[in-house]
Amino acid sequence: MDSDRSLVDAAAAGDRDAFDELVRRYRVQILSLARALLANSLDADDIAQEVFVRVWRSVRGFRGETTFKVWLHRVAVNLIYSQRRRLWREHRVFISAHTDEDLSQAERAASAENLEADVTLRLAIDRALAQIPIDLRTAVVLRDVQGLEYKEIAETLGIPIGTVESRIFRGRQRLRPLLRPLYGRRRASRQARRPAG
């Protein structure tokens, strides 16, 4: 049962308030997806907005063959892939990970406040993600960051569920050495945040 269905139906009939509610439900997820897959590129925010604009334009044609969440993620992934190809063609510069200088700057700032700690953690994770191939990255992000089910990921990407499993397995293997130092730091950060007594 698609919990968004009634809102989607209302939005398809032109109800802008219903669509705004859908935006409120998913804007954090879509922004996170864009930033995680585009390595926090400046274009990520623009792409996240464009996802909702495209969906608003075409919501009338949504047939309900999948859930709204899957459809939204499919639109988002397609737009993000297009953007990566465009950037690659125009600038001949791969959307790269943040440099070590960026991270160390962020790391220094992060020791002060939890907010900065979150930013640091996010930057570090995105930096690791940017170092693995995009197909593995997409599958891992959809599963572990976005929390989609395996079946939903298969529907989003239009690939068999076995391929999804394989990509997630290999993606995590590639991420293991990149995230291992972070894992210890995350635990330490959690302990430091715990109120004393």
Partner: peptide
């Protein structure tokens, strides 16, 4: 499991006011 755990702790990107206004 360790990799999945770290990724799940990635803090969500909260949209700024500018983001919402632009959208």
């Amino acid at each position: 499991a360790a990799v999945a755990t770290v990724l799940r702790t990635r803090p969500p990107d909260v949209p700024s006011l500018e983001f919402s206004a632009a959208l």
